[in-house]
Design a protein around this nucleic acid. Structure first.
Lengths: 168, 168
DNA sequence: TATTGTTATACTCTATAACTATA
DNA sequence: TATAGTTATAGAGTATAACAATA
């Protein structure tokens, strides 16, 4: 900072900070709405949304953990909360007895449907209102590319379970 | 989702999700590094970075709270932690007796300097590696515009203190 | 032996509300 | 009365490690 910073120029720094700030503000606004309108945290909403999107509304715990930047125990905790509220159901997987299938219930789908319009409103108002169609296409392509790079590159949240060499 | 979602088309949805995912992965990686290399959370690093950037390395608590999406008490807590470690110092403001000036200490500057190269490395590797120069310029301009829009538009984190009508 | 998931636990963080002091 | 900041408190969330069960 101050003087350009060793390695990132001013332009890069600006883009980096803007990204952090934009996503923070967006998540803050979206989280606030989800809690008020559906008593859901953003993480819980993401879990439900993924399930609604999945074939038959079902995913294994592991499939859920991937994609969400999340520890296994954290996911168990959140899924447990959703389970208590009857928004999802857990069942044994037929193929692999170790796995747990998570399925959205009708109530879960209803809640997502209830919450989605307002959610989308906020996103549109905050994120997309100041964009042109060209902006949108550019941003989507670019961020998609970056995401793939991040997912592919090096250390993922889905890091090997048994390793503890986190330098910490 | 599934069917385009009421109000956001597939392209918008993709950009939205990519943004959330990219910033989550980035923050996760960056946070991990900061903790390992400097025992700092991302929030703490942001506080220090803002101070290092400020004239005379000083800002009022209120100035710090703006910009960071943060409650006042949360900021007091984090600044308190930094204070205990001798990375910042607090003092009364000469002009306004109510205000508290926060100043980075030499130790704080040293720590930022120590941590910055690795921090920047991660950001560059994850975020900027898959970008062209044009991409960078575009992204910076676009996100800057969106940020200004978000800051200007409606409800900010710096929301009026005395209001409690949060629909909650 | 590796993988899936849960649990127990300990801790960090965050927000709300009440409070003090100054403008 | 409004603003700046702190504190007490209480709760949500997260991660680590240990554990059970299946592959």
């Amino acid at each position: 900072m101050t003087d350009p910073a060793p390695g990132l120029n001013a332009e890069q720094l600006g883009a980096y900070f803007a990204l952090i700030e934009v996503s923070s503000l967006l998540q803050y606004a979206v989280d606030e709405h989800l809690r008020a309108d559906g008593d859901l945290s953003f993480v819980q909403f993401q879990i439900l949304a993924r399930l609604v999107d999945a074939p038959d509304g079902r995913l294994r715990m592991t499939d859920l953990a991937d994609g969400l930047v999340y520890s296994r125990s954290g996911l168990t905790y959140q899924v447990g909360l959703l389970d208590k509220r009857g928004l999802i159901a857990r069942s044994a997987s037929p193929d692999d007895e170790r796995s747990v299938m998570v399925t959205v219930t009708a109530a879960g789908r209803d809640l997502v449907a209830h919450v989605l319009p307002g959610h989308v409103d906020r996103v549109r108002q905050l994120l997309f209102e100041p964009m042109t169609g060209t902006d949108l296409a550019t941003l989507g392509e670019l961020l998609g590319r970056v995401r793939d790079h991040m997912r592919a590159t090096p250390p993922r949240s889905a890091k090997p379970r048994a390793r503890r060499d986190r330098t910490a």
